[in-house]
Measured scan of single mutants.
Amino acid sequence: LDITFHVDGKNIHVHGASEEVVRIIEELIKNNARAEEIKETLERLLR
């Protein structure tokens, strides 16, 4: 699975993920999660 995301100002662009995963990533970023935390969360979800 190949998910890429980047933050452009306040806009979060996520590619290669389901809508549910996109929402989770957006929440994590809004809550100022570190990249490592986001990665760990995604790995748990995608197991």
Rank of each mutant, 00 (worst) to 15 (best):
L1F: 14
L1R: 12
L1H: 12
L1G: 09
D2C: 09
D2F: 12
D2N: 12
D2M: 12
I3E: 02
I3F: 12
T4R: 05
T4I: 14
T4W: 13
T4K: 04
T4D: 07
F5P: 01
F5L: 09
F5M: 03
H6N: 14
H6Q: 10
H6L: 13
H6R: 09
H6C: 06
H6V: 15
H6A: 08
H6G: 06
V7D: 02
V7N: 03
V7W: 08
V7Y: 09
V7I: 13
D8I: 02
D8C: 07
D8W: 04
D8T: 02
D8P: 02
D8Y: 06
D8H: 08
D8L: 03
D8A: 07
G9P: 02
G9L: 03
G9S: 03
G9V: 01
G9H: 04
G9D: 06
K10R: 09
K10S: 13
K10G: 11
K10E: 15
N11D: 15
N11C: 05
N11L: 14
I12L: 08
I12P: 01
I12W: 07
H13T: 12
H13K: 08
V14Y: 07
V14A: 09
V14S: 03
V14K: 01
H15S: 13
H15D: 05
H15M: 13
H15P: 05
H15T: 13
H15E: 09
H15C: 04
H15W: 14
G16K: 06
A17F: 05
A17Q: 02
A17L: 10
A17T: 04
A17I: 14
A17G: 04
S18A: 05
S18Y: 05
S18E: 04
S18Q: 05
S18C: 03
S18K: 04
S18L: 05
E19W: 14
E19V: 13
E19P: 13
E19L: 13
E20Y: 12
E20N: 07
E20R: 07
V21T: 07
V21E: 02
V21A: 07
V21F: 08
V21G: 01
V21W: 09
V22M: 06
V22Y: 06
V22C: 03
V22S: 03
V22L: 09
V22K: 08
V22D: 00
V22F: 06
V22G: 03
V22A: 07
V22W: 06
R23P: 01
R23T: 07
R23L: 09
R23W: 10
R23K: 12
I24Q: 07
I24L: 09
I24H: 07
I24S: 02
I25K: 00
I25S: 00
I25G: 00
I25T: 01
I25E: 00
E26A: 09
E26S: 13
E26G: 09
E26D: 10
E27I: 11
E27N: 12
E27L: 11
E27S: 11
L28M: 14
L28T: 01
L28G: 01
L28I: 02
I29E: 00
I29L: 09
I29A: 02
I29S: 01
I29Q: 02
I29G: 00
I29R: 02
I29M: 06
K30T: 08
K30M: 11
K30C: 07
N31C: 06
N31T: 09
N31A: 10
N31G: 10
N31P: 00
N31I: 06
N32Q: 11
N32V: 04
N32F: 08
N32S: 11
N32T: 04
N32E: 07
A33L: 06
A33D: 02
A33F: 08
A33M: 08
R34F: 06
R34L: 09
R34Y: 06
R34D: 13
R34Q: 10
A35K: 05
A35H: 13
A35I: 15
A35L: 15
E36C: 03
E36Y: 08
E36S: 11
E37A: 09
E37Q: 11
E37N: 06
E37R: 07
E37T: 10
I38E: 01
I38H: 01
I38M: 03
K39C: 05
K39G: 07
K39M: 15
K39F: 15
E40F: 08
E40G: 09
E40M: 10
E40K: 10
T41C: 07
T41M: 12
T41V: 11
T41L: 08
T41H: 08
L42N: 00
L42K: 00
L42S: 00
L42C: 04
L42T: 01
L42H: 00
E43V: 10
E43T: 08
E43H: 09
R44M: 12
R44A: 13
R44D: 09
R44C: 06
R44I: 13
L45S: 01
L45M: 06
L45A: 03
L45K: 00
L45R: 00
L46E: 04
L46H: 04
L46K: 03
R47Q: 15
R47W: 15
R47C: 10
R47D: 15
R47E: 15
R47A: 15
